Simulated scan of single mutants.
Amino acid sequence: MLKPNPLKALWKAGKPAFGTWITLCPHPRVVKIFAAAGFDFVIIEMEHTDFSFETVGTLAMLAREAGLTPIVRPPGTMKPHDLTRPLDAGAQGLLLPSIDTAEQMRAIVHATKYYPLGMRPMNLRGPHTDYVTARPAEIIEHVNSNTALVIMIETQRAIDNLDEILQVSGVDAVMIGPDDLSQDLGIPGELQHPKLFEAYERVFEVCHKHDVPFGLSAQNPDMAKKWVEKGARWIPYQNDAAMVFNTASAAVPQLKSIGGRSDELK
């Protein structure tokens, strides 16, 4: 059976989707833990990790089986095979960094969708098709419609071009990358700067205009609530490294206090 993409079903129903990132521990059990926790999707990070394609493929295939939508952030978008290899390995979508122009997005759609939407290299028997036997036209239509393309807005140029970018058929959702956007705006790392929030509002406005799901990461439930109230339907929550660190750093001081330990004894 060809597996549907649960993420797209949530968006079609107008509901927000919540997921997280794998950036630290590329172990299959982490995927099972996130699935058991109830997340809707998992982003497998390649832009800022040393994960191999083999590792990414294993994680993506297990996520599919566990009912999580596997999304891969590739190391870049200039080389088509950086996009199609994770898709062939089982990813049901891509988180595309630094999308600045409609022309760039059209090229990506052409590379990642099968005919008639594009010219993705033809391979109809693999993890991405669940090894099913079906008519080629049925497989092609299913894969094309269930492959999610989420674009990252990380520059002022991208914001200026966003109205045109969202007119490209194939854009499924928008994610703001606040760190790189702050750097491009001349306020690197100042994530509470009014200039950055003004940029957010412009992105939200354009996405609402085109009825395209949008969002950005949340580091706590209150932040997630804030984005949902703005209309966000794409919310990655923390990541594996942050969850481990935040849990440990909250507990350890309490443990040391229970044990009568002072800071000098660290």
Rank of each mutant, 00 (worst) to 15 (best):
L191N: 10
L185F: 06
L166D: 05
P178S: 12
V174H: 03
E229V: 08
K230F: 08
L216E: 02
N161A: 11
D172V: 07
N220R: 12
S217E: 00
G170Y: 06
V252H: 08
P178R: 09
Y237I: 13
Q238N: 09
A242F: 12
V174L: 08
I187C: 06
L216P: 03
K195Y: 08
I165Q: 06
W227R: 01
D222W: 12
A173F: 01
K230I: 08
W234P: 03
I176N: 05
F245Q: 11
A173V: 00
D172W: 07
K226R: 15
H210I: 02
P178G: 00
D160Y: 09
S182C: 07
A218S: 12
G215L: 00
R202T: 06
N239P: 03
A224P: 04
S217A: 12
Q254Y: 06
K256F: 09
G170K: 09
P188V: 14
N246H: 11
A224K: 00
L216F: 09
N220I: 06
V174W: 00
Q219P: 02
W227E: 04
D160S: 14
L185G: 04
P213Y: 05
V212R: 10
S249A: 14
G170I: 07
S217K: 09
I187G: 07
K225Q: 15
G177F: 02
Q183M: 14
S217P: 01
R202F: 04
F197V: 11
M175W: 03
F197S: 10
I187P: 02
E190N: 09
K195A: 13
V171F: 04
D211R: 14
W227A: 03
G215K: 02
V203S: 04
L166Y: 03
Y237V: 12
P178Y: 01
E205L: 13
P213G: 04
D163Y: 14
Y200N: 01
P188G: 07
Q167T: 11
N239Q: 07
R233F: 01
D180N: 13
N246D: 14
K226N: 14
N161P: 08
S249P: 02
L255R: 12
G186M: 12
D222I: 07
I235T: 06
Q219I: 12
H210R: 15
V168N: 08
P236I: 05
A224Q: 02
I176T: 07
W234C: 06
N239T: 06
H193V: 02
D172M: 09
W234T: 08
R233Y: 07
D179Y: 13
D240N: 08
S182M: 01
D179C: 06
E190Y: 05
N239Y: 05
L216M: 15
A218Y: 00
C207N: 00
P178V: 02
E164I: 09
G215W: 05
D211W: 06
K225Y: 04
G177N: 02
I187Q: 00
V244T: 13
H208C: 08
A241Q: 08
E229R: 14
A199S: 13
E205P: 05
D180G: 01
L162E: 02
M243F: 08
S182L: 09
S249F: 12
V212M: 09
N239G: 10
I187W: 05
V171E: 00
G231S: 10
A218I: 03
F204L: 10
K256T: 09
F204Q: 10
